[in-house]
């Protein structure tokens, strides 16, 4: 029964900001467990607002968001923290701490959930090996290339084994080669069972990967295709 419940369901979600801007307008969509979904669209189409809503950083002005069939609207502050542990996030600007090395940046995610030192060392080493950064474990983020920094961010997002990975423009600051490598990593993560949602402007990666593509415009879903491509969507 629970296998059939979408891992994420948005039901008539709206979000208006105080300035009167409607960032999301009566949007409904479902994402199944283990899916790989691209969310594309022009600037101001509501993609970043969607990410913030899923992370419960902001509240919708209408509608409900369900995680595994349960509404997240009534979560208390402590429950919000636990809810967020289910979601790993990667940003375009990496959001790494420059006063800490690679290990410490990744370990931060483990530390906040109270993982013991021994387990933390093991988990961080394991995830850094997955993203191919074992040799850079003691390096400072400023000593790494853009691609390496994004892999550190990915390692941090994955180290707590989230069910969902949200990537907001993960290739935005990467050259084509690193962008492709990053998408391959995300694909690998997806194959391991994690639901992956990637917000992007990069048509190359979308076209190449042949995944589900949701096109957004003016806060609405313009199209939703199972094996879509960026090039086909003219908005």
């Amino acid at each position: 029964m629970s296998e059939n419940i979408p891992i994420i369901r948005l039901e008539n979600i709206s979000k208006s900001y105080q300035e009167g801007v409607d960032a999301i307008d009566n949007l409904s969509l479902e994402v199944d467990k283990g899916e790989f979904v691209f969310v594309v669209g022009p600037s101001g189409s509501g993609k970043s607002t969607l990410i913030k809503l899923l992370l419960k950083e902001i509240e919708p002005t209408g509608g409900q968001i369900f995680m595994r069939g349960k509404s997240i609207a009534s979560l208390r502050r402590r429950q919000i923290s636990k809810y967020r542990r289910e979601i790993g996030v990667v940003f375009q600007n990496f959001k790494l701490l420059n006063d800490r090395n690679v290990f410490e940046n990744v370990a931060l995610a483990q530390r906040v959930i109270g993982v013991s030192k021994w387990n933390m060392n093991r988990n961080v080493a394991s995830i850094l090996s997955l993203v191919g950064l074992t040799e850079k474990i003691l390096a400072n983020p400023s000593e790494l290339s853009g691609g390496e920094q994004q892999r550190v961010a990915l390692a941090r997002a994955l180290v707590n084994r989230p069910s969902i990975l949200l990537a907001d423009e993960p290739t935005g600051n990467l050259d084509p080669k690193n962008a492709r490598a990053m998408m391959e990593l995300l694909d690998d993560v997806n194959k391991l069972g994690t639901t992956v949602i990637v917000v992007t402007h990069n048509p190359d990666v979308v076209d190449e990967m042949k995944k589900r593509v949701i096109v957004m415009q003016n806060g609405k879903v313009l199209s939703d295709k199972v094996k879509g491509g960026y090039a086909y969507e003219r908005y």
Binding site: R84, L108, V112, I113
Partner: peptide, 12 residues
């Protein structure tokens, strides 16, 4: 750092 901690599920 605080914004990162919030996103990875740190409690208040």
């Amino acid at each position: 750092e605080i914004s990162i901690m919030r996103l990875v599920g740190a409690t208040d």
